[in-house]
Each structure stands twice: as structure tokens, then as C-alpha cells.
Amino acid sequence: MMINIVRSELTKAYTLPRVQVVTAALVLLFLAIQPGSSDTYREVAAGVDANQMVLDAGQLTDAATVLIGYVSASTLNAGLLLPILGAVIGGAEFRHGQLGLSVVAVPNRRRLVVGKVLATGLVASGISMLFSLISSVVAWFAIKDWNPGLLVSPNMLTAHARLLLFCLTITLISLGVTLVARRTLIGIIVSVVLIMLTMTQVVALVSPAVDALLPWSASRNLLLQDVFNGVPLTGSALHGGAVLTCWVMLIVIASVIIIQRRDAR
């Protein structure tokens, strides 16, 4: 049954110290940026006028929208490490003949890969929900005298859903690349190159439409619609979410095909 395979893959992941270390680093990084985020939330709350507007980057903007945008931005920053998690989980399969043992235990390779994807997705979702919980607690202390109900508003819950989609897809893309390439390092290098393509704006300068198809640009489009970040976005949030989902589907299909066709070495 698939549930046994997923359970097994979760055990396989979290009994490896390097997975525990990367997870701890992710959480610590997120905690480390919380004091700065808290200051930003306090500034927003302190600057709200009678019309619930706030001056953000020189423009009067809806304060609730601005705050939700900053909560999203803090997770995007910590999420830079999520591809490492996906690469480490995927790459462990190719060390010490692990894949051979995995195929002996689960000879249906499609189910094996799908089980690994689901398990890694659960891990990423758990981290995302932890991020959402932490940022909600930090934000509550910052805005409790202004509008604490904002933290459970439909707009904030939608933002958390977007964060979940971002954490899930960005981790699975890296997992898939690693399963295809069969090496942790290649998974990490590909992820870094994809990040750099977005951060340097090289592709965006040539063609914003193509840039919007890159996973990290799609992540920015998904999460940062309401944040002034100095660099223009290249698509809508819906477009960003669709691009990330397509990346995951394509890379998972490629992983299944390649793991099925190759000898399990």
C-alpha cells in the first residue's frame, strides 16, 4: 500500500543526520530573521492611519496587504535553503547502493518514486506550516494592538496557502532534479543556478515572459505581489503557482521514467 511506502520514505529521510541538520538549519534561519521581520511588522502597525492605510516605499497602501506581503517575503528568504533539503533526501538514494535496497523493498519503481515525492512533500509541508505558525506568533505580538484578527483573515490564510505551495514545489523540484541527475551536488548546483538566474535578472532583462517560467521567478510572482521589492515581477500570482506546479509535474514524471528505465545502481 502506498501509505506504507510513504511512511518508510519518511523514516528513511529523518533517520539520516544530514536531513536533520538541513531541517534544523532551515528552522534556525527562519527564526534568525524573525527579529527583523518583527520590527517591520511593528513599523507597519505603527504607521497605520485612520483609513487603515500605511506609507510603504513612498506610497500609501492598504496596511493589511502590506503586512501580509512582508510575512510572505520572510518565508521566501528562508526558503532559499529548501532545495538543499530536497537534494539531500533525493541524493541519499544513490549512496552505498541505497537505491538497490529500495527497489528490493519496493520493486514497483513508479510507486517508489511517487512514495518518495509524497514523503518529501509531507516534510516540506510540515516545514511550511511551522514557518506559518512562527510568523503568525511573531506577527501577533507586533500587531496585537492594531488588528490581531488580520492573522486569521481570508487574505492571510490565502497567503499561507501560497507559502505552502511555494515550500512544497520548490523542495520537490530539487528532489526531482536530484533523482534525474543521481547526485546531491548536481541537485544543489541546478537549484543555485535557477536562483541566480532570477536574482541577477538576466533572463528578465531579455524576456520577462521567459523569466516568469523560472521556478524562483514564479515563486516571487506567487508570493510578492503586494510587496515593494525594488525588482518588478514578471507574472501574476496565479501564473506563478501554475508554473511551479507544472515544474513539479514535469520533473516527477521525468524522475519516474528515468528511475524505471535505468538499472538500480
Binding site: 523514516t11 539520516l16 543526520p17 541519499a92 552505498h96 547502493g97 541505497q98 538497490g100 535496497l101 528490493v104
Partner: peptide, 14 residues
């Protein structure tokens, strides 16, 4: 299997 052993960082029971 020859060449397919437990990952060294993992505990035997795991």
C-alpha cells in the same frame, strides 16, 4: 546484495 549496504550514517535499527 553485494554493493548495496546500509547507509553508514543511519543506525542499524533505523
Amino acid at each position: 546484495l553485494d554493493g548495496a549496504s546500509a547507509v553508514p550514517e543511519r543506525r542499524g535499527v533505523d
